[in-house]
Design a protein around this nucleic acid. Sequence first.
DNA 1: AATATGAATGAATACTCATTCATTTTGTGG
DNA 2: CCACAAAATGAATGAGTATTCATTCATATT
Lengths: 217, 217
Amino acid sequence: MAVAAVKNAAGTAGKSSRRTATREERRQQLIAATIKCIAKKGIGSTTLGDVAQEAGLSQGIVNLHFASKENLFNETLQFIAEDYKSQFDTTLAKAAPEASAKLLALMEMDLKPSVCDRQKLAVWFAFWGEVKSVPTYQKICEAYDRGYDDAINELCQTIIEQGKYGNITAQTVTDALSSMTDGLWLSYLVSPRGFDRDVAMDAVYSYLRAVFPDHYE
Amino acid sequence: MAVAAVKNAAGTAGKSSRRTATREERRQQLIAATIKCIAKKGIGSTTLGDVAQEAGLSQGIVNLHFASKENLFNETLQFIAEDYKSQFDTTLAKAAPEASAKLLALMEMDLKPSVCDRQKLAVWFAFWGEVKSVPTYQKICEAYDRGYDDAINELCQTIIEQGKYGNITAQTVTDALSSMTDGLWLSYLVSPRGFDRDVAMDAVYSYLRAVFPDHYE
DNA sequence: AATATGAATGAATACTCATTCATTTTGTGG
DNA sequence: CCACAAAATGAATGAGTATTCATTCATATT
């Protein structure tokens, strides 16, 4: 059968056209295909056949590499969480050393196209939509969230001490900022036409300026 | 069969014990059962059998009253959207006439137990999780969102004019506030242990005080 | 070249679930 | 009390899908 080559062309990871890839390459390829499928068809309508087809591979391939659909989905969530975390960490490391600069950089990151992308957001919300009924999803999301919360909280704490801002706690600001980006993502998902990155960033910025006037003017 | 009585006891709508209800009563009962099922099992794992069982009725009952599962789900979303809207409208009407009081009342409403309830939030997020892939869900969500946005925007506009607040637009504040409640809901869904209504309300209040100092002190 | 290894295939299996419909039950107006 | 219409049942159907596995194929090793 010379069909293999044709099928490979449709594959998600166009890397090598070798018929056999390493275990890890295939797993990554299948996770990428899963993300595409979930964004396109939703988590409920994504079948293993869809994923295999998107990857340009055969029916049984997912079970071969992930043993079960449940496993594939868990690892997919883990993957997008890890992907976000790496952007978060990089942003934190690359921003100017002042806490206020780092905080602003993180907020901007949440709204830049590589993060605030309708395809990616659809996948996040697909998993969040099952958080209540799938304990594994909740645990993964909760663990990562905790990390961001701690990091942002620490930055806010520093800023508050620097500016001698009374009347406000770091946790309050952290909650406000974190929830704001999640909510802005939802508004983009629900009303893509009415969404504008700059306007969204204004919302965040308006808060920063208002609570930390000495730092953001 | 005397089983009917037993089954009815398990039903969601314990209203009349009549075996046959009016068309509208049954539809409401089935929608209520759907909400319970989605909150418990997730939207992807909720079967028509589950819904029928939750309602204490028979297998084919949903198709009898809603023709299809798709229909049932659409009407369920419509129902929770209408339910939220009625709370929104009531809150708006009952609050003191000043724009600032109305705005605060709306924000408090979003966090009060009858709205910010993990069961209800799970259903909202379940539908939001499919917004990208199910156009009907998007249209319904978008239409309602538009309404809240307009109402809140108008209040903010009034407040801005009253306080002569320069440097900020009504839309910016509207975006910030709306997204904040959505995000706080998500944090409750993902981390129920770490969530506290008062702390969440502090986040909202901190923003209001910061941008509209003359109104919220 | 011959053989061994494990990746990949895809048809077959077992099962779930939305939908249908023949039958039964229930309420109502004559 | 009867007959009719409406409501409800639940077994049967069939489409769809996760999973299995015997077989094929590509690559590495001898």
